[in-house]
Write a protein that binds this DNA or RNA. Sequence first.
RNA 1: GCCCCCAUCGUCUAGUGGCCUAGGACACCGCCCUUUCACGGCGGCGGCGGGGAUUCGAAUUCCCCUGGGGGUACCA
Length: 541
Amino acid sequence: MTESYATATPAGGPIPGPVRVRFAPSPTGTLHVGSARTALYNYLFARHLGGSYILRVEDTDVARSSLEHEQSILVDLAWLGLQWDEGPDIGGDHGPYRQSERSEAGIYRLAAERLLNESKAYYCFCSQERLEQLKTETLARGDMPKYDRCCAAIPPDEAAARVAAGEPATIRFRVPDTAIEVTDIIHGRTDFSSEVIGDFIILRSDGGVSYNFAVVVDDIAMEITHVIRGEDHLTNAARQVLVFQAFGHEPPAWAHHSLIMGPDGGKLSKRHGATSVGEFRRMGYLPSAIINYLALLSWSPGGEREKLAKEEMVAEFELQRVSKSPAIFDIQKLNWLNGLHIRDLAREEFHLALAPFIGDAGSGVTPGREGAKASEATPGRDAAAALGVTPGQLAVAEAAVQTSLVTLADANGQILEFFTATPLAVSVDAASPDEESVAAELGEEGSAAVLEMASARLEELPAAAELTAGTVDEAVDKARALIKQWKKSCKEADIPPKRLFRTLRIALTGRGSGPELPFMLAGLGRDSIRERLEAAKPYAK
RNA sequence: GCCCCCAUCGUCUAGUGGCCUAGGACACCGCCCUUUCACGGCGGCGGCGGGGAUUCGAAUUCCCCUGGGGGUACCA
């Protein structure tokens, strides 16, 4: 009921047919989180209304565009789960979906000629030097730079003759003297005067189409009903409304969302840290967390929920609930959400998501949250083998760290430590101040008794070879039960529970902190535990 | 310079004239749980940029200022 915009033009007239939106990236770089958010809003809007979400590649800037960039953008988009209904790779009824191909097909040339014939456009023979000078002069005078219509009055016959003779020319749009109204779903109505808009170029002298023209021609051809994009395009909308009118076509409904800023309030850029989706992927962020976070930057669902799955966002997304003000990218909140999404993963999903980050991918390094080297993943490698443990052991370690991760990349260090934490004997000899104080704790009264007690019942724990991914819970439960019994025995022997836990942890790992003890006991394996316990005995009291 | 947009805790936001001594979340700080860390629970800190106007009553409407952002290309 609040979705009347779906079936109505800004003016109130009905838009025939279903909702069609497009995400139109320019393949001049990798997918930026800001663009990803635009894609996300388009996706959510279309899915919410059962419409179509189209991917159109705006590669008319030949010098800066590349197929490699296009590829990586498609990969990142798909990785985020924002699958499109029509696009350059899968086709559709309104193709081609690459502007370079549309240009080759003569689509823009033809459209420009139509305007030429109707006198809504004209050839311009001004040199770039003259244009440059004109701009400088206008700026010096304190006015808005704007083409002076030097060539607007050239008779069409004469112009055509000059073009035929080979004189380089651009085609300019003849901006009518009129008030322009842009009605935006997010912003409401904005008025522009065509006075501030100069006759802009629609076809370059090299035959290439320019942005403001290509967009309109394509949006008409592709039957786009809603244009959802960044606010940096708001003033472009004024120009584009004019072109729509020149073609006698009703403009689509507009929705210009705010831009993402860096922590210092400036436009989000590399100096603020990671900005591309690919970087976040390599740092160990989950796609579900990224789109959740991106959606929340500007949009909020009705209630007070923060963690949302894609399906929930689709069900509730509404453009009128998108905020008008710019949003600052806050990595802390992304971190928080990423942790929540990681904890939501089923064991198997988690294992799969983790694979590229375990073993070789980061061996030797424990990437910190901040300065994480965006190490390239090596998914082909078998993670357990790389660590020298059984798949079952790895499964236990994964289960142990799942609740404490911020990013997937953090797992490598934690899992590595799970298996390779320096046992006490070595630790004491190394005697770094930190380890020394931990080792000293082993001298506490009762530790010897604890070690004896533990050694005596190790058979109740699974051996490393017996563990499988499917028996993780079983193994951990066994360890829990055993600990419970040890606890009981300690009580009888008048040994405080704390002594039990501390002694075992230190004997097993040489550290004062780490994963929960039941997981350590289950994952390390019977033999390894026995060895470490024995090694600790000489130091216990 | 000119045009356009925006303005609630440090950050993301709820809030569309009285329900607001402004709600939630991240971060931060305490406490609890706990062998540690994390998770979880409880509590705290903290905000309507400034000035006018309309109104019985304004975070909510209007104007001005200030601040921030965007645009001003033969880039998109």
